[in-house]
Design a binder for these strands. Structure first.
Length: 718
RNA sequence: GCGCGAUUAGCUCAGUUGGUAGAGCAACCCGUUUACACCGGGAAGGUCGUAGGUUCGAGUCCUACAUCGCGCACCA
């Protein structure tokens, strides 16, 4: 082929591998990811409307997965679009220490090496996990770069940066002084394997089929799936309205023979008992059940621990002391049988048990002295913010879920018994157990005269993540906050509607009297090509970096976006991505045609003739439409529209029609058409840039345009 | 039990305020003439889960049901 005018690169198919890293480096070195540089170089100005996204910080302990690829893509699309619009655009990256998650990853590593965290000094363990995390953080950041993220690395924050630790501790102190955190003996979700309490969002329900036992309890028959908790049951509870048991009076004492001998039980009448369930009679174990705990609180009953922190029975179990509950159950049943107290067994009782979301160990509810956040007043403010329309959800129906969660919230346990996290700056009295916030580490005596010792617990990860929009913008320093907060969009996975979104809303309202963001965009899960959830055990996990190596970052990005409506899960197949790799090449070849149809040197754009003007006007209408989609978070439509315009209109119709005009003799039509081709190509590149930044920037660099900037800071076409 | 979502072409999914059904991928036929075979041309493929209702008109609005998925609650 004889095409002396055009860049030799264009003669070969587009090669993302040779392009992407080089382009990213140019972007990064240009400084345009940083809005301050954009102001300095006239891309935007101080009076321009700010546009801010705070990145949901990926775990620093590992590589990115497909879900990360989706969020990076979506946020980068928004960021690039707004930067091109001339907004004062900031996308703040971050890295999460991911407290419990990371500690588990590290514990598995220790386990493999035959070590255990319980044999290590906390500070040594912390140091090891810190080094491990910081080493991995770089891999994660590099993956984010490969996806083309145009975030401002100079503002990157790590959730364990010293100033962040300090600020989070100050928030605790403020909440303590405002009476919004309290120390309390309450039921917590205890994981005996990890030796820590867990919040509701860190537990899961798992359906189990187990035997269900009916036991003779004095004159009553009670039923249970957990006979190992029954040693301490000295209250028998029935509904006040239950006619069957009306002869029994509240407070009445009854002598009866129980597992380890005779005991005295007390009758309690409480309407929370479901008369339809089992025999309508229950005994309670307040130390190991939320419901029982609440009954005990209402009637001021004794609470006694039966099971220790490792899951073994305490002395109250008599003969069974020291035996792990998993082994004790059949032994207890055997004894009950011998004593004639076993009435019957339902072999296949289906019920759900709460399990640890990481290790599937059955959660043992335990009463523990912990720090709790009083949620009601905070949640009410969050609801007000949504009611008044200050926060909008995409898709809309997630607003309902948010409301439901905020309406039904319970006090939040923020104490964790792990080292990998932000220490709670508190002191606890060794006698009366009273807790104090103590930022300066100066308190020594409790008001009761007891000694104060340091709380060794750390904060639940979400306590710090909940402040993330503020922390990543430098709170309490207001320099960036005053400009970039509230953020415009919080874009994250739909599963975080409970875990994260409400907490960010709450903290921003509490600390700054502002919403954290005006829009919440929730993406769905990225599943495998069959629509099944990716999991290591199924072996269907796809690594986004492998996909980038094979198809290019641009192809992966647009494959993740086209047709992917917010909140909906996506089935990601290799064929789908391959199609968009071809699209990148199509655009490459369009450029090759345009370049070989237009004289490279001394070409001056001319006025368009009537028919060509009509063509550009039609494109302008489509661009307007796409712009509207961009403003309304319909990236799935915007991307599809530009894709189809480029392929089906520009390539298939306009270019085909141009061939006879270009090779024809009418010089005026020819120049008009050449101008048209260049204009459409330029505009196409601009509109496509947020979706496929690498190939568009590369082509832009080849085009002979006077005074050109980087495409990433060119003006979005009006 | 309560709530939410889904049900449209073989597969994965769009379809913005109701106006004669769309895309990508796969499959079929044809074609390597000068942007591109990582391509082009052509043809095929859907009673829009079921049953009612509102309307001149419903994939789109309403009601009920079915199936699948998710969340929440209970589980003594």
């Amino acid at each position: 082929m004889n095409e002396p005018n055009i860049d030799p690169k264009l003669l070969k198919p587009y090669n993302p591998k040779e392009t992407e890293d080089r382009i990213y480096k140019i972007w990064e070195e240009s400084g345009f990811f940083n809005p301050d540089v954009c102001i300095e170089k006239g891309v935007t100005d101080e009076k321009a409307k700010p546009f801010t996204i705070v990145m949901p910080p990926p775990n620093a302990n590992g590589r990115l997965h497909a879900g990360h690829a989706l969020f990076v893509t979506l946020e980068d699309i928004m960021t690039r679009y707004h930067r091109m619009k001339g907004d004062r655009t900031l996308w703040v990256p971050g890295a999460d220490h991911a407290g419990f998650e990371t500690q588990i990853v590290y514990e598995r590593k220790l386990e493999k090496e035959g070590r255990s965290r319980f044999d290590m000094k906390p500070e040594d363990l912390y140091k090891e996990i810190y080094d491990f995390t910081i080493a991995n953080k770089e891999f994660m950041e590099n993956d984010v770069r490969r996806l083309g993220a145009s975030c401002d690395w100079s503002r990157e924050k790590f959730t364990l940066d010293p100033e962040i630790v300090k600020t989070v501790q100050q928030t605790f102190d403020k909440m303590f002084k405002d009476g919004l955190v309290y120390r309390g003996d309450r039921i917590v979700n205890w994981c005996a394997k990890h030796q820590t309490s867990l919040s509701e969002v860190e537990t899961e329900f798992e359906e189990r089929t187990e035997p269900y036992y009916y036991l003779q309890y004095g004159p009553f028959v009670i039923s249970t799936s957990r006979p190992e908790t029954k040693f301490g049951d000295k209250y028998v509870v029935m509904n006040t309205k239950d006619e069957r048991y009306k002869e029994y009076k509240h407070g009445q004492k009854i002598e009866l023979e129980w597992i380890n001998g005779p005991i005295t039980t007390t009758v309690i009448k409480d309407d929370s008992v479901d008369m339809e369930f089992g025999t309508g009679i229950m005994t309670i174990t307040p130390w190991h059940s939320q419901v029982d705990f609440e009954i005990a609180e209402r009637h001021n009953l004794d609470k006694e621990q039966i099971i220790d922190w490792k899951g073994k029975l305490l002395p109250i179990a008599g003969d069974f002391v020291g035996i792990h509950i998993s082994k004790a159950r059949p032994m207890i049943i055997e004894k009950l049988k011998e004593k004639g107290l076993l009435v019957k067994i339902d072999e296949a009782y289906k019920h759900s048990v709460k399990t640890c979301f990481k290790c599937n160990t059955i959660i043992e509810p335990q009463i523990k002295d912990q720090w709790f956040v009083k949620m009601r007043p905070l949640a009410d403010r969050a609801l007000d913010a949504v009611d008044s329309g200050k926060i909008k959800f995409y898709p809309e129906n997630y607003e309902k879920i948010f409301r439901y969660w905020m309406t039904n919230t319970i006090d939040w346990n923020i104490s964790r018994q792990i080292v990998w996290g932000i220490p709670i700056p508190a002191k606890i009295c060794n006698i009366c157990k009273k807790g104090y916030s103590d930022l300066k580490d100066e308190l020594v005596k409790c008001e009761c005269g007891g000694e104060l010792h340091k709380d060794t617990d750390t904060f639940d990860t979400w306590f710090s993540s909940g402040q993330w929009t503020l922390l990543s913008l430098g709170y309490p320093d207001t320099k960036d906050l005053d400009i970039y907060h509230p953020t415009n969009v919080m874009e994250t996975g739909r599963d975080l509607i409970f875990k994260w979104i409400p907490r960010m809303v709450i903290f921003a309202l509490y600390l700054r009297d502002e919403v954290a963001f005006h829009n919440v965009y929730l993406h769905g899960l990225v599943n495998d090509e069959k629509g099944e959830k990716m999991s290591k055990s199924k072996g269907n996990v796809v690594n986004p970096i492998d996909l980038i190596d094979t198809f290019g970052s641009d192809a992966l990005r647009i494959a993740l976006v086209v047709g992917n409506t917010p909140g909906m899960d996506l089935a990601l197949s290799r064929d789908r991505i391959k199609g968009y790799k071809n699209f990148a090449n199509k655009l490459w070849n369009i450029t090759r045609f345009v370049m070989s149809s237009v004289p490279n040197d001394n070409f001056k754009k001319s006025e368009l003739n009537e028919s060509d003007k009509k063509i550009i006007d039609e494109f302008n209408i489509i661009i307007k439409d796409i712009t509207l989609d961009m403003e309304n978070f319909r990236f799935y439509m915007a991307s599809e529209k530009i894709y189809h315009y480029i392929w089906d209109t520009f390539a298939s119709i306009i270019i085909e029609e141009s061939k006879p005009i270009i090779s024809g003799g009418d010089e005026k039509s020819k120049i008009s058409r050449q101008t048209l081709l260049i204009e459409i190509l330029e505009k196409s590149l601009k509109v496509l840039h947020p979706f496929m930044p690498f190939v568009t920037e590369e082509i832009w660099s080849i085009l002979p345009i006077e005074n050109k900037k980087l495409l990433m800071v060119e003006k979005w076409p009006e």
